[in-house]
Design a protein around this nucleic acid. Sequence first.
DNA 1: CGTGTTTGACCCGCGC
DNA 2: GCGCGGGTCAAACACG
Length: 307
Amino acid sequence: MNGDRERYHHHHDLRHFLFHDELSPLFSQKPAVDVGVANAGDDMHGGFNPEAAALPLLGFNELLQSSMMDYGLLGKGLEVTADSGSSLNTHSGGGGGVLTTVLTPNSSISPSLAEAAGAEGDADQQQKEQQAAEGDEIVLGDKSKTANMIKAKKKGEKRKMEPRYAFMTKSDVENLEDGYRWRKYGQKAVKNSPYPRNYYRCTTQKCLVKKRVERSYEDPKIVVTTYEGKHTHQIPATTIRGRTQVLLSPPPLPAPTSIYHEFMMQQVPHPHIPSSRSSSSQQHIMIPNTMINLPPPLHYYFHDHYD
DNA sequence: CGTGTTTGACCCGCGC
DNA sequence: GCGCGGGTCAAACACG
């Protein structure tokens, strides 16, 4: 909405959202959370996932490529009530202690998560979309969209999970500009939350990356952005309506005090305020799947600090 | 006119 | 089988 966009330009009330260096061990060490990750990736057996186990030893790019985060878990994390956050201190106290959390066994992770770790997820979805586009077998007399939708999901194939990674961003702005061009294709109300979830798709042809953006209902200033899939292209030279942006040199974020910031800058699209000079109003934290699995809601963790 | 958003309808999976 | 929640589609609309 244009009005919103206008409004966004005036909101940069993000004074001091701290990066937590105490969380650094999440990225730099190989913690016990591997167990949880393994379970997450192989939930049907609770078996060991060597790929997940290797995560801490890989670069963060590899992490992004190979790790998966189930959005359901994310949602679960967000739905956890504040009282569960009481265990927070226990987790945050000992650095790696955070990582001892084990994924709940009944989490809604797709059985094919492990496969999604590779490129197969993309290929699969591409194939499905292509099938849908062909539309050579429309049976139903309904609207074509219905037929396509059915076609796309025929064979009873379960949706394969794309590699996912998420950010929690303390921001008044939901529409974080990350250098890519997104088209909104849906919006849904989030259960138990007054804030809707927005669905975006990369507008670049053949690129099937999607992202979901929603606010934490507990802390409306926390925006959770979940990316799904991998871009098959470079960051476009132009983003918003012809506005050319220097995408390879994002505006500096304030006080890059932790490795999170470095990760963000190096490995993922660089979110910044849309077409604004007030680039200092947002800070982002990447949430590895390991953190998403924490019992205490992540945003609650942040909640303790930013005010 | 091209591009992006809105929004109601629709589908699917899952739990009861 | 039914209802619910999540995810997606696409026509209509808005905007530069």
